[in-house]
């Protein structure tokens, strides 16, 4: 959206309107972050800290647990985000048909999970996926498995469980964004394509997807950040286990600060790894976005 040059008064208003937010962010975000950047150069236990230069970075390169957490975070990112976004798109396209019955009902139902309280959600998932829980009973009744799946006690299945849990909770949330965007799309383009005999899959691929690209980018960014910060689910459902299979970077930071012998400098270093990672990912996404514009 092109904007005329601002006059002096608008400039002042611009700052005045942002000021309350900036002051609060400065106090409660920037200051603690800068503080933690300083901390990331400190080594020591508890309150006995001293300047350690790059010692924490060096420790990071040898830390197998950190590498596991980083790996898990990436697996969640690479596997879960596409599944969730794919499902959300599918549901949104299905629900976008104005002749469909019970649209409101379906939409509300699919959105409902993201309104649950975290505590309800984690308690429920733990009990439903317990060794003899209702999910096992259901799968065995349907003859899909002939024994209990070790959802919470096997490293592989625990990862799957976390992916199921996040997907359950956030698919509806993303779907609403797509649904809203789809309702903005000119229907006549579809009808023209349909009359020209373009099959449904091609309409989806060559019309829907390109027009939704900005929203897909938006939700991808939000989901990327969500995955890198993933904490609630793993802390409350699996505690990062078994065998660190669901340990994420955020949970590792929490453990370093609150569970282990407190080494705050090191946990600050791990936090900054996330900042740098997001910086890189944002830069990549920026490049993709620029490509799109010049094309």
């Amino acid at each position: 959206m092109p904007q005329a040059r601002l006059d002096r008064r608008e400039h002042i208003t611009g700052w005045a309107f942002i000021a309350p937010a900036l002051i609060l962010l400065g106090l409660f975000m920037i200051y603690p972050i800068v503080w933690s950047l300083w901390m990331s150069f400190q080594v020591g236990k508890g309150m006995n800290l001293s300047f350690g230069g790059l010692a924490n970075i060096e420790r990071l390169t040898k830390d197998a647990v950190f590498q596991r957490a980083l790996g898990n975070t990436f697996i969640f990112f690479i596997v879960q985000v596409p599944i969730m976004i794919g499902l959300a798109l599918l549901f949104a396209v299905a629900l976008n048909d104005s002749t469909l019955r019970f649209r409101g009902l379906f939409r509300t139902a699919i959105f409902l999970p993201c309104v649950t309280s975290l505590i309800a959600y984690s308690t429920l998932f733990k009990s439903m996926f317990a060794t003899n829980g209702v999910v096992k009973n259901a799968l065995m009744t349907l003859h899909l498995t002939d024994g209990p799946i070790p959802w919470l006690t096997d490293p592989f299945w625990a990862k799957i469980l976390i992916i199921i849990a996040i997907t359950w909770r956030w698919t509806g949330y993303n779907m609403i964004f797509y649904l809203a965007a789809l309702q903005n799309i000119d229907r006549s383009i579809y009808e023209a394509a349909r009359i020209d005999g373009v099959p449904a899959w091609a309409r989806f691929r060559y019309l829907t997807i390109p027009m939704l690209k900005p929203v897909i980018l938006f939700t991808t960014v939000i989901s990327t950040i969500g995955t890198l910060q993933l904490f609630d689910e793993v802390q409350n459902i699996t505690q990062g286990g078994p065998s660190d299979a669901t340990l994420t970077l955020s949970l590792y930071i929490y453990n370093l600060t609150f569970k282990f012998m407190p080494s705050f400098g090191y946990s600050a270093t791990v936090s900054w790894v996330i900042v740098v990672l997001v910086g890189i990912l944002s830069f990549i996404q920026f490049l993709i976005a620029r490509d799109r514009r010049s094309a």
Binding site: I30, I33, I225, L228, Q229, T257, S271, V275, V278
Partner: peptide, 13 residues
């Protein structure tokens, strides 16, 4: 960019 910082990292300060 700051949106991505985990809260656990900010808690002590």
């Amino acid at each position: 960019l700051l949106l991505s910082i985990p809260f656990a990292a900010l808690m002590v300060p």
